[in-house]
Write a protein that binds this DNA or RNA. Structure first.
Length: 132
RNA sequence: GGUGCAAGUCGGGCAGUUGCGUUGCCAAAUGCUUUGGUAGCGAGGAAAGUCCGAACUCCAUAGAACAGGAUGCCGGGUAACACCCGGGAGUUGUUUUGAGCAAUCUAACAAUUACGGAUAGUGCCACAGAAAAUAUACCGCCCGCCUUUGGUGGGUAAGGGUGAAAUGGCAGGGUAAGAGCCUACCGCUUUGGAAGUAAUUUCAGAGGUCUGAAAGGAUUAUUCUCUUUAAUGAGGAUAACAAGGUAAACCCCAUCCGGAGAAAGGUCAAAUAGGAAAGUCUUUCCGGUAAAACGGAACAGAGUUGUUCGCUUUGAAUGGCUUUCGGGUAGACUGAUUAAGAUUUGGUGUAAACCAUAUUCUAGAUAAAUAACUGCCGUCCCUUUUUAGGGAUUACAGAAUUCGGCUUACAGACUUGCAUUCCAA
RNA sequence: CGGGGUGUAGCGCAGCCCGGUUAGCGCGCUUCGUUCGGGACGAAGAGGUCGGGAGUUCGAAUCUCCCCACCCCGA
């Protein structure tokens, strides 16, 4: 299996799963306060160990900016996803995570780069690993 | 060459690595599908706002009207239009041409216009002003009378004053003073001719009378009918200078409009609950009967009793189970991208546009793909005298059923036209 | 994707339909009085691009058109 892929099956797509994730409310914020994550842990083992998606509030910016944030979050997860996947396969559990920007909006950060998001994402992933 | 304005076109390019969506082909596992390989394609001029018009789908519907809404000079284009093109008229501005002492008028050019009707009716017009629309007279001007620095009765609407707006303008005649009272010119209304598809333009003619509170009447002009040899006479019709503004006030007139919207609509359809139909089960055994009824024994439940035996009683109803059917939720698929399509060439037309011909480069996602990085070129910014170095990859902005428009946002580049006179020849 | 509403003083609201005279009301704010002082009370006062831009009109917060921001509803 390749390391740096992110196919459609690893995305969260149903409204029920969103509801259960947000009702549990396990919130983790990164050290630089740019990325936050909400997740749940399930004991059932499925074919897909980790399911991910990203959510951006409508008030933070216009459609172009929001799309860019989502793509950068997805890219930074794609590069580092093996950290979570290996751990979950080891422990035989499954995970569902929603990533969101925390202290970011279009007025303060009109132009975003990958380097703005990547350290926050790494920090969040490490926190999730340690909390499993 | 530069600058400004207007109109139009474009909205970074090439190569590589990784990744995502989709379509075709191949291979493997499999046969619902999944995985891998390979090839093609993968945001815009506004995709935005959701302001109009349609396609498409479902519902309703004999036809028409009312209500409500939209549009509103004329002609053309279009599937349709609050759109586009051409023409007309109005308004504003500029300079020039012409007229004039001047105000101003005329012509050309440019910009602009939600540009039907104010004589169908109703409403409103603050303050000021005599008076704001049925009319009317403050200061004036003129005449008569009187108790003469004035008062009073009448005439007048030229002048002053108010206001955004004051009952055609201006000049001359006329008058007691005045007035379309009369005349010329301009304007306005109307009749006829010509040009034009039409809006409209142009030419010629007529029109400002008297009386009356008004309706109307008289008179004059044009015309029709009857009568008379004819003149004429009788009757009828039309006209005889306005009625200030406001319809983005109500309204009237003409034309158009059934409603809801892809969360429309269609197909498949789990679990649970409920509906309908069919089948099956009715504790077991023996006797008995055509089949039942019925009798006996065992079994189970209930009652009686301190407990057991025993006794009594119950064991077919709003029942259980199975299957099928239809509605249909979650969910999945579809609608969904070849279309009033784009481009080339030719023709018609002033143009918008239409016709013919040829080619076909093709986003199709659905918790929603179109991304990240590297190199070169291009562009921009900063530092520097230059070489060079560093930074940015840009503005506005992200398809969601699809088209035609409108509106709004926009870094920079290019083309065309006009203006300007700054620089050079 | 479709539909509806709001914007007026520091805050909460009238006025808009049906255009006009000084754009008002309550709380708050400033000054003065009252009190030993404060509160309460009384008197006076300041504070408004009526969300922005065009248009109609003699005249627009109000009528019409175009933008901006915010809020609500529909499975």
């Amino acid at each position: 299996m390749k390391r740096y892929t992110l196919s459609r099956k690893e995305r969260i797509k149903s409204k029920k799963l969103f509801d259960t994730i947000y009702s549990q409310n396990n919130l983790i914020v990164s050290k630089d306060q740019k990325v936050k994550a909400v997740f749940i842990i399930e004991n059932q083992t499925e074919n897909i160990p980790v399911k991910v998606t990203e959510a951006v509030s409508k008030k933070t910016g216009n459609a172009v900016w929001r799309n860019r944030v989502k793509r950068l979050l997805r890219e930074s997860y794609r590069v580092n996803k093996f950290l979570l996947v290996d751990k979950c396969l080891e422990r035989n559990i499954s995970l569902a995570v929603v990533f969101s920007p925390y202290f970011l909006n279009q007025k303060r950060n009109p132009i975003l780069q990958l380097s703005d998001v990547l350290p926050g994402m790494l920090d969040v992933i490490n926190k999730i690993r340690s909390s499993i």
